[in-house]
């Protein structure tokens, strides 16, 4: 038994070392800095206790970024997850040319986010292709283009995000589908279960582990959405998100690193609560095997 414990530890060593060497110090450092008035360019810093946290909660810019981040998370994850699963089921079957479709769907996921954001900035502008197609379809286009209007900017970025992410999660669902032994379907078919029954009683439950991964990772990434905002709107037109707020107050113009670190830890707590809820929802209800 002791050997087994030692083995468990040795196998975990690569992460343990990386964590201890590279990530522990930054985490502790920024946590502490969050309780000071540290400015990036100034060597001085003073302990201010919970002041940063208190002022953040009454900072309208922070509250707005909080609101936008929630809209972003809630508005993208269900779509991304469902579409990704649908695509995975669609290309999981045997048919001619499926490799091409799979690669095509995956292509946005392997293009740099910066480049995608630049492309969509162009497509979304007045006179861009998306505005053109929308007006052909009889939809109303904001006067200055999709990204220059309070009512459409954030949703346009969210739509792009779903478009970009589905390919990656499709791939993970696909890998998950492959872990389901074919025999299960065979025996289900023998006992007379239809396609839909099979999906709900075999496929979905057995996809739970990868499903959890997808939902948790996608939430974390969405809570931390940044590049899209940085490239496309710079937080204007009501699109500022929490990480954008952190970047702007901490790293660019204002250099209030203490304040920004405190904001990062509020974000941390929110994500942690959210993730914990997801782990709880996805907990194994019965022993599958």
């Amino acid at each position: 038994m002791r050997w087994s414990k030692a083995r468990a530890l040795v196998l975990g060593l690569p992460w343990l070392l990386t964590f201890a060497l590279f990530w522990l110090y930054p985490i502790v450092y920024s946590l502490i800095i969050g309780f000071t008035d540290k400015q990036l360019l100034s060597p001085e810093r003073h302990w201010v206790g919970l002041d940063n946290y208190r002022s953040l909660l009454s900072d309208p810019a922070f509250i707005a970024s909080l609101k936008n981040t929630f809209i972003f998370v809630v508005g993208t994850i269900p779509f991304t997850t469902v579409i990704a699963l649908a695509l995975a089921l669609l290309v999981n079957r045997e048919f001619r040319g499926r490799g091409v479709f799979r690669s095509g769907y995956f292509l946005p996921s392997i293009t740099s986010m910066v480049v995608i954001a630049l492309i969509f900035t162009n497509l979304y502008q007045r006179g861009g292709y998306i505005a053109y197609l929308a007006s052909l379809a009889g939809l109303s286009v904001p006067e200055h283009g999709f990204l220059y209007s309070d009512s459409t900017a954030l949703y346009s970025i969210m739509a792009m995000d779903v478009w970009m992410a589905v390919g990656y999660y499709m791939l993970i669902f696909l890998a998950g589908l492959k872990s389901i032994p074919g025999e299960l379907y065979e025996s289900a078919a023998v006992s007379g279960a239809g396609r839909i029954r099979q999906f709900f009683s075999i496929t979905l439950p057995l996809l739970r582990p990868v499903g959890l991964f997808i939902v948790v990772i996608n939430s974390i990434k969405s809570f931390q959405v940044f590049v899209e905002i940085f490239v496309m709107t710079k937080g204007k037109f009501d699109t500022s998100t929490m990480v954008y707020f952190i970047y702007e107050t901490g790293l660019t113009t204002k250099f209030q690193f203490g304040y920004a670190s405190a904001a990062a830890y509020i974000l941390f707590v929110i994500i942690a609560v959210f993730a914990a809820a997801q782990f709880w929802l996805f907990r194994r209800k019965q022993v599958v095997w």
Binding site: L40, L41, L251, T252, F255, F257
Partner: peptide, 10 residues
């Protein structure tokens, strides 16, 4: 670039 300068000077 400005971030790099600020981080380095900081």
């Amino acid at each position: 670039g400005h971030e790099k300068i600020v981080i380095a000077f900081g």
